[in-house]
């Protein structure tokens, strides 16, 4: 059976950019084929009429879950704990790439 190519190469590149995923050309080619096959499969939902069905977001009938607005020392991390896994640090702060002037 010939595989349907539903997603174009440009679409794959666009999705990768939205997802902040650097892909190699090899990955782009592979994902174009594999994701097209999966998208073709999930398109079968179009066969069901859902005009009168409300979407559902949660399953166990919870309503309005609140928590007390108090500071919990149990869950607080020290600056050292919170930053200990960061690769780039300066003066106890986490260094990031510049986000302005890109």
């Amino acid at each position: 059976m010939k595989k349907k190519i539903i997603l174009t190469e440009d679409e794959i590149k666009h999705i990768a950019r939205l997802a902040n995923l650097p892909l190699t050309q090899e990955e782009i080619n592979k994902f174009q084929e594999q994701l097209s096959e999966v998208v073709d499969y999930i398109n079968k939902l179009n066969k069901i009429n859902t005009d009168k069905v409300e979407p559902i977001a949660q399953l166990t009938d919870l309503v309005k879950v609140y928590k007390k607005d108090i500071q919990s020392s149990e869950r607080s991390l020290t600056q050292e704990e919170a930053s200990k896994n960061a690769k780039a640090k300066k003066n106890g702060f986490i260094k990031t790439k510049s986000i302005f002037n890109l």
Partner: peptide
């Protein structure tokens, strides 16, 4: 890759596939 871990190109093939698929269906 900022607070912990490495850069996003280090994701394995399946994680990349699912991130791509999910980004597509939400876009």
């Amino acid at each position: 890759g900022i607070r912990y871990g490495g850069e996003r190109n280090l994701f394995g093939a399946e994680a990349k596939r699912r991130i791509m698929l999910g980004t597509y269906t939400l876009s």
